[in-house]
Amino acid sequence: MSATTQMGAAVDISRLSKIYKTREDDDVLALDKIDLKIEPGSFVAVVGPSGCGKSTLLSLLAGLTPASTGSIAIDGDGVSKPHPKTGVVFQSDLLLYWRSVLDNILLPIEIKRLDVAKYRPRAEELLAQVGLEGFGNKFPSELSGGMRQRVAICRALIQEPGLLLMDEPFGALDALTREQMIMDLQSMWLRLRNTVLFITHGIDEAVFLADRVLVMSPRPGRVDLDLKIDLPRPRQWSKTHEDKDYHGYVRQIRAIFEAKGILVAH
């Protein structure tokens, strides 16, 4: 439809560490000297067990938390505060209940002091693309969990983010809704071709969606495996899940977790 051929942003992370200072001197090393380059327009998934530093990585990339050491650059700009090219989708939808769906989607436009009227048609178009045509005047309390998360995704996309950060966005959804959301996310991304950093603890959805899966291990947070996923696109739910290579990738990641004692082999 609208030919918003936006280029994805490039991400360059070098020797990035994050130490959380706690009151009792037992500081938490959440990220330990991470080096990572992300190609513009690629879909990168990060998997790892709870507490391994995934959200910390996202928060640093979003410019919400300062790094302890090391640096992050988005399209060459050092990140010390939220970068205008990034959009974030959090685990919970974080919709403002006192705003209509449309006004929720337009929130970043208001905050950036852009012309809200000009973006209204775009907001409606995004809603239609996620299957919520005509829901603009509803309020969040009238939507199901899956619908609300779709609205949250629209809200991130209206800023046309060159870098879309997603922190376990489907973690709170039931299996059927999650499947639909995964498929919709893929088609959205195939249309936009922006850079996506998708955080999850689901190995299957990471492999299904991504060009590249980073496997993180806990304490200190490090990237243990950087796996390129070579599966044809667009990926289809049943076909890809039956693919021999797909299972190979999943096995490879599970092996890491089993070796680390995060998963017990059975």
Binding site: L64, V88, L94, L107, I111, K112, Q159
Partner: peptide
């Protein structure tokens, strides 16, 4: 998290107050 959300959109504290905290 709501504060983080609007901050990620580049909101100032002034905007955070009127768009989120006060409502």
């Amino acid at each position: 998290n709501l504060v983080n959300l609007v901050r990620s959109m580049g909101a100032s504290e002034w905007q955070t107050f009127f768009k989120v905290r006060l409502p």
